[in-house]
Design a protein around this nucleic acid. Structure first.
Length: 938
RNA sequence: GCUCGUAUGGCGGAAUUGGUAGACGCGAUAGACUCAAAAUCUAUUUUCCGCAAGGAAGUCUCGGUUCAAGUCCGAGUACGAGCACCA
């Protein structure tokens, strides 16, 4: 039996004493490999089961790469600043600094007990002044280049946490940490102009080997949309406003405009009569929290300003409303409303009875020459009680249809619909429910032998009484009147016009699909794409608008009114200017305070009187008292690992050039937009400054999945009995068993439930491996039976480690060990190489065997990775499959050299195949060499 | 609502990318060792019919392409994630 407790401690000490995993950073003679984990936030509760998963993955690749002759950089550090640390400190009555220090100590001990091959000489902490000196220095560059700005803007304010939050820290209108309500509020804030990099951040995604889902999330978050700006004049005023729209082709359908309640011209254009109600509405919106705003979005609200705008394309006067469904922070904070073709505008128009003008029309049927033009209707009558629809069945002469007809002279479409229903079915007592959008339809009338083009209006009626009058039919009208269910309608009404009309009736709402423009003067007859292009041309020619690209990505709010973060190296001077600290004044050290809690919504550093008050060149000033957000320090830490002790530069340029980019980056998917976007932004900025040599810092990114509790539910406070603590597992089963099990559970990227018996199975495998050596199964021998499987194992394990398919690599090693047990012996060479293959997953037991049983006196970590011979992985016979009509009817062992002809002959000789072929005609035979023969019979 | 992703035995999961579905592990059953238990070793284990040989069904559902579909195409369902009045 192997004593994992003794062994693991022993080799951890050995690696530490011998600095086995120290990186010689200046050794450029070997190819480099930079394996990086997302550094942890050292919480008070220590490691959880998910940490070892991602860390083991990078550790395995790092260890293999080292044995393959790479110079490997595999560092670890601490993302120790930020809200959670401070919040936890407050809740437990600790000082954040002391508390963080202790947590780091715990984390480090725990990580060491798992045997990770980190170079601890390169350990960094974002809270270390020698580190945050450079965070401040980068901020300074950004400030001087105009990307860090101090602006008055609406922000996410969390009263409970007493700070502003960035967009990615607000989830469903609540703070990510603590779940406290967040409101919008105007405040003077530090922000980063990340939208300036939106296009680069978007385009570079294409070049990255990242999960497609993560790239998609970033694309959505950046939210590029191509549209146009259109200027509107306000009637009887010299005011104008500009709207942003992606659908400028629908401008002829604009029947009103909406401004965000906060829009700056609202107060100036509002008429006397409307003033009171407008101000009341503005006040109501201002006090709504984000959550209330989203919860209330089911019902549209808004008020009329009394003012009118002039539609630049047709000079029509349209009313200007304000509503909170228009956001002040997106586009221009103003929209033109086209209720016919936008769901939100449609809903608003319906509620406030605003006009709806259709400017796009769908086309059905096939266009023919010499069509006769007509206007017509489709009338759908619904019987609410029976939930049935009135149809007429033309049988062979046109199938099932609703009631349709041609509009006569001096008749409105609605009058026509009433008349047709009465004439054809005799029902008179019906009530109009809905008029739908018009559809252009092309068809052939068999009874008239002519092609028609009709513009057709659809109607939905409700049957009020089943009383019938006499029908009034033409002679050639032979049909049955039938009431049918919705399912029958969907199944049997095949006519494109009628089924489309039914679709409109069912869905309600705006017509948002593409179509052909109508009621739009110079756009008539064009589709959406063509019309947008033409409209932009027109707007630009008339100088009332232009093409515009808009991003959803907002400024990154870069200040927190909290204590535990990097101080911002800015002084607000008495004379109104801002002074940025000289490089020689960095780092600006966070003052030690006894009371680090803010009061009355003020930042804690406001209370650091001595620290705050400064005098520069005879002018008095006060330091900025906000601190940087948690994601500041984590936006460049991967650079600092390369040169962690440099006090001249953030890192030596030569080293950066050699070591970047990160070759493998592993971390949770929860950082898809926060950290991973901010870090890309800073890196891209530093690239533009010539400081960093690569545009993208993380070439290959992988997200490890979540380790769920044994109940299949996320481990956490809700089911404490299912929480697995890795430290306990190290105690009970050993670090090697834990590492092996977590890698064997399933694909790295998938969420996987914990299984205690599964863990024990992994431990059993290690016992089984150890016993081979303990029981002296390693002997001087040749084992030809093992040769093929050995080479296959080296091949599969090497490839699978490379592609991070650790679960299948491990299963191959199990197959190998099973084979060894079957042979009951193994040569020293094979045993030695197997131990090397196992080493990246289970470094302790393999190091022990390497020394004790295999007699080495240097570390296995510096041994050379085994190689395989492709020829020897191949079998010389295989099991040929014989199918008859695609069903397996026989299997037979044949040589790999069997020719196609031989394969067919052998196949037909098999007893069971013969019985299936008996009395049948062979149509053809498909033969796949080294695989199968499929005989097709009739 | 929109955008992604996933779906395979009792369970975790394999399947060379269109060619034997269920590798490997867990669990279960039986046997060996043992006074006994644990540990260990050996065998069986998708379901159904059959003593067996063998046969039938089977990768969320329905349909299609193909000699051949877990894999490709079309429609749908369920679960998960992201976004959500983004004009």
């Amino acid at each position: 039996m192997y004593d994992f407790k003794k062994i693991e401690k022993k080799w951890q000490n050995y690696w530490e004493e011998n600095e086995t995993f120290k990186t010689d950073i200046w050794d450029f003679t070997k190819p480099k490999f930079y394996a990086l984990d997302m550094f942890p936030y050292p919480s008070g509760v220590g490691l959880h089961a998910g940490h070892p998963e991602g860390y083991t993955a990078t550790d395995m690749v790092a260890r293999m790469k080292k044995m393959q002759g790479y110079n490997v950089l595999h560092p670890m550090g601490w993302d120790a600043f930020g809200l959670p640390a401070e919040q936890y400190a407050i809740n437990t009555g600790n000082h954040p600094e002391k508390f963080t220090f202790e947590n780091i100590k715990t984390f480090k001990t725990q990580l060491k007990s798992l045997g990770f091959a980190y170079d601890w000489n390169r350990e960094i902490s974002t809270t270390d002044p020698t580190y945050y000196k450079w965070t401040q220095w980068i901020f300074k560059q950004l400030y001087q280049d105009g990307y860090a700005k101090y602006v008055d803007m609406p922000v996410n304010w969390c009263e409970e946490l007493g700070t502003v939050l960035s967009n990615d820290e607000v989830i469903d209108g609540k703070s990510e940490r603590g779940g406290f309500p967040v409101i919008r509020k105007n405040m003077k804030q530090w922000v980063m102009d990340i939208p300036a990099y939106a296009e680069k951040l978007l385009n570079n995604l294409e070049t990255l080997d990242w999960p497609e889902s993560t790239k998609e999330i970033q694309r959505n978050w950046i939210g590029k949309s191509i549209g146009a700006l259109v200027d509107f004049k306000v009637l009887n005023s010299n005011q104008t406003f500009t709207v942003f729209t992606t659908r400028c082709d629908t401008l002829f359908g604009a029947t009103y405009c909406v401004l965000a309640p906060e829009h700056k011209i609202v107060n100036e254009i509002t008429t006397k009569e409307q003033k009171e109600i407008v101000e009341e509405y503005q006040k109501m919106c201002a006090t709504k929290s984000e959550l209330e705003r989203t919860e209330l979005n089911k019902e549209k609200t808004g008020v009329f300003t009394g003012a009118y705008a002039i539609n630049p394309v047709n000079n029509k006067e349209i009313p200007i409303w304000i509503s909170d469904y228009v956001l002040a922070t997106y586009g221009t904070g103003a929209i033109m409303a086209v209720p016919a073709h936008d769901d939100r505008d449609y809903e608003f128009a319906k509620k406030f009875n605003l006009p709806i003008i259709q400017v796009l029309e769908q086309e059905t049927g096939e266009t023919k020459e010499n069509e006769i033009l007509k206007n017509s209707i489709v009338a759908i009558v619904h019987d609410k009680e029976k939930d049935q629809y009135l149809t007429i069945n033309w049988h062979k002469n046109g199938g099932r249809l609703f009631i349709g007809g041609t509009i006569e002279e001096n008749e409105t479409p609605l009058e026509c619909a009433f008349r047709e229903v009465l004439e054809e079915t005799g029902y008179a007592d019906i009530e109009l429910i809905q008029e739908t959008f018009k559809i252009r339809h092309h068809y052939y009338a068999y009874n008239k032998d002519k092609y028609f083009q009709i513009e057709c209006t659809g109607f939905l009626f409700e049957l009020k009484s089943a009383d019938k009058q006499n029908q009034n039919l033409d002679e050639d009208e032979a049909f049955d009147i039938e009431w049918v269910s919705k399912d029958t309608v969907l199944e049997e009404i095949k006519d494109a016009l009628h089924s489309k009309t039914f679709e409109y009736v069912q869905n309600g709402g705006a017509m948002t699909e593409d179509g052909i423009h109508i009621n739009s003067e110079f756009l008539n007859g064009l589709n959406k794409e063509e019309a947008i292009e033409k409209m932009i041309e027109w707007l630009e020619a008339h100088q009332v608008g232009k093409k515009q690209i808009n991003y959803r990505l907002r400024d990154w709010i870069f200040a927190r009114q909290r204590y535990w973060g990097e101080p911002v190296p800015i002084v607000h001077m008495e004379n109104g200017t801002d002074y940025v600290l000289e490089d020689s004044e960095l780092p600006l050290i966070l003052p030690t305070m006894d009371d680090y809690k803010g009061k009355n919504g003020k930042a804690p550093l406001e209370n650091a009187e001595q620290w705050k008050q400064v005098e520069i060149n005879g002018v008095k000033g006060t330091r900025e008292t906000s601190t940087m957000p948690g994601s500041a320090g984590s936006s460049w830490y991967f650079l600092r690992y390369i040169d962690p002790n440099n006090d001249e530069k953030l890192a030596d340029p030569e080293l950066l050039k050699h070591w970047l980019p990160v070759d493998l980056y592993v971390g949770g998917p929860e950082h898809a937009v926060g950290h991973l976007l901010y870090a890309r932004f800073w890196n891209e900025y530093l690239y533009d400054k010539g400081i960093v040599p690569v545009q993208e810092p993380f070439q290959k990114l992988v997200h490890q999945g979540m380790i769920l509790g044994e109940n299949g539910i996320k481990m956490g406070k809700r089911y404490p009995e299912y929480v697995v603590n890795p430290t306990d597992v190290v105690e009970s089963h050993g670090a090697d068993s834990l590492r092996l099990y977590e890698m064997f559970m399933g694909p790295l990227q998938a969420d996987k439930p914990w299984s205690q018996t599964g863990l024990e199975g992994s431990k059993k495998f290690l016992d089984r491996v150890y016993r081979i050596f303990e029981e002296g199964k390693v002997v001087e021998c040749t084992t030809p039976e093992l040769e093929r499987i050995y080479h296959q194992t080296v091949k599969k394990v090497t490839n699978d480690y490379e592609t991070l398919n650790f679960n299948t690599a491990i299963s191959q090693m199990m197959i190998f060990i099973n084979a060894v047990y079957k042979e009951e012996k193994i040569s020293k060479e094979y045993a030695e190489h197997f131990i090397q293959l196992l080493n990246p997953v289970c470094p302790h037991i393999t190091e022990e065997i390497w020394h004790t049983f295999l007699g080495h006196n240097t570390t296995i970590a510096e041994s050379t990775w085994p190689t395989y011979e492709e020829e020897k992985t191949k079998e010389d016979t295989y099991e040929m499959i014989v199918q008859v009509n695609g069903k397996v009817r026989g299997k037979i062992e044949v040589s790999v050299n069997t020719s196609k002809e031989e394969m067919e002959t052998i196949a037909k000789e098999i007893e069971n195949v013969k019985t299936h072929l008996e009395g049948k005609e062979i149509v053809k035979i498909i033969t796949v060499p080294q695989k199968l023969v499929n005989i097709v019979i009739k």
